[in-house]
Every structure is written in structure tokens, then in C-alpha cells.
């Protein structure tokens, strides 16, 4: 068997390897974190489109603040929630560049709600990648704007009660209503098939930038194993059972 394996492991038989747009830095994320998968997909899309030298990424505040250590492109690290404002100026001052923001639920749907809505409403020519895991990972598991009703977090330890804690926010449905968005979709990366669909969605969002018809918005419903206090496999099951009914997957807008 060992011989056969060595026979298979030849360059001509290679079908999947790490993207050249990913750096050699080991990601700081917890084991099984969805961030790593989405980072990889963006890297693969940039590599396949051949736009490494034409792309500027905008990093958020949150667990993915250090995304710039992992994708080998030019980056700007924004203040919490302000990535769409940075993206607006980059896109307008360098219309020849592919611009994308990468933001979590606290960044995009709480502190940066105004920047998100107005950038989408103006139809800024950029991609927005929205990681929604319903919790604040970096600060240690506090309630997010997208935390589900009844879901426990360190600032709603008995479960989110809409009467006192407010309701979970469907940001993606909101931006889909705005005339400035040209492609709005909600995806996930819990299975290989879902990963392939998410990659297609990200590719489409980047391709759309060539048309200069507005903002492309890709939400990825994600897990936070540490924040949810579950192992990665159970987190995926919990996400399917609890997150998907409230945050259903699929394209919401495609014009």
C-alpha cells in the first residue's frame, strides 16, 4: 500500500493543494473555525481570477482582525465597523482595483450598521463578506446582534430574551432591499458541498465587480466552537438545526 500511495502522490495527480495566495502563517483561529475555510476560498478565488496584484482587502475588528497575516495581498485594517467606509474610498479612488471587506457580525451588523447600510445603499463597487456566527468570538462569547432567540452567550447567560435583549438582526435581508446591491446571498461552509457553493458565490461576487453595478454581499453562516462551547462537528450540527431555520441559505438577490 505504501508503494501505491507514493505512486499516486505525484505532481501529475495533484487535485487539491493550498492556494498560493495563502501565506505560510499558521492561522490563530480555534480548531475547526469557519474563518479558515472562508479565508481559503477568498484566496482561491483571487488566485484563479489572477487578481492578486489588483486586490485590496479591508480587515475588521474581531477574531479575523489578523486576516492580513494569511492572505498575501495588500490590506488595510479598519476600526471596528468602519470597513465599508474604507472600502468606499479605496474603491472610488482606485476604481481599477478589486476591493472587499471581511467582517464579522459585531463589526458589520452592530457597531458598523450605518457604514454597512450606506455603502450598500450607495452601491459602492466592492464585495462584502459577512461572517455570521451569532456570537462575539474575540472578546469571549458575548451576545451578537445575530445571536438567536434563546441562544446563550456570556452577556445573555440564560439565553437571549427579545423582551430585554432585542431581536436577532437579519442584515442580509436588509441590504438585499437596497437598490445599491447587485448580488446578495447567504451561504455556509459546514459540508464539502456547501464549501463549493460558497466558493462559487464569492467568485460571482468578485466577478460582479467588473460590471461596476454595485455592492456584492456574501453572508456565510458560521460556527464558533469556542463561543458555542461545542466541538467543531457538533457545532456544524447545531448550526444546521438552529441557525439555518432563522438564517436560510441561498441567493436573496441577483440582478
Amino acid at each position: 500500500m505504501a508503494e501505491l500511495l507514493e505512486d499516486i502522490k505525484k505532481p501529475e495527480n495533484l487535485v487539491h493543494k493550498k492556494s498560493s495566495v495563502l501565506t505560510d502563517n499558521v492561522m490563530h483561529y480555534c480548531p475547526g473555525c469557519s474563518h479558515g475555510v472562508v479565508h481559503k476560498l477568498i484566496a482561491e478565488v483571487i488566485e484563479e481570477m489572477g487578481i492578486q496584484d489588483k486586490t485590496v482587502g479591508v480587515a475588521p475588528v474581531g477574531c479575523s482582525v489578523f486576516i492580513y497575516n494569511y492572505l498575501d495581498i495588500d490590506w488595510q485594517e479598519a476600526a471596528h465597523g468602519r470597513a465599508p467606509a474604507l472600502g468606499t474610498a479605496i474603491s472610488r479612488l482606485r476604481p481599477d482595483r478589486f476591493v472587499f471587506t471581511y467582517q464579522g457580525d459585531g463589526d458589520l451588523a452592530a457597531i458598523g450598521t450605518a457604514e454597512t447600510i450606506h455603502a450598500c445603499n450607495r452601491g459602492e463597487n466592492m464585495v462584502m463578506i459577512f461572517i455570521n456566527n451569532g456570537i462575539y468570538g474575540m472578546t469571549g462569547g458575548q451576545m451578537a446582534p445575530t445571536t438567536l432567540e434563546g441562544m446563550k452567550a456570556s452577556t445573555c447567560p440564560f439565553g437571549r430574551d427579545p423582551k430585554t435583549d432585542g431581536n436577532p438582526l437579519k442584515m442580509t435581508e436588509i441590504v438585499a432591499q437596497l437598490p445599491g446591491t447587485n448580488f446578495v446571498t447567504r451561504q455556509a461552509v459546514h459540508t464539502a458541498a456547501a464549501v463549493r457553493r460558497t466558493k462559487k458565490a464569492i467568485r460571482k461576487a468578485f466577478e460582479k465587480q467588473k460590471e461596476k453595478t454595485g455592492t456584492s454581499f456574501v453572508e456565510v453562516v458560521s460556527t464558533c466552537n469556542s463561543g458555542w462551547k461545542m466541538n467543531p462537528v457538533d457545532s456544524n450540527k447545531w448550526m444546521e438545526e438552529n441557525m439555518f431555520p432563522f438564517y436560510p441559505l441561498g441567493d436573496i438577490k441577483d440582478v
Binding site: A78, L86, G87, R94, E115, H118
Partner: peptide, 22 residues
Amino acid sequence: MVVLQAESEVASINMLYGGAGC
């Protein structure tokens, strides 16, 4: 030259960040 009326002063200064970064 680009001239844009932003949604707030918070957005304005962060647009400066993005533009200056370029």
C-alpha cells in the same frame, strides 16, 4: 478629484483612512 457626502463624520474620517491607505 472624488467628492462624496458621507453618512456621518465617522464614515468620513474612515473614508480618509481608506483613501490615505492607498
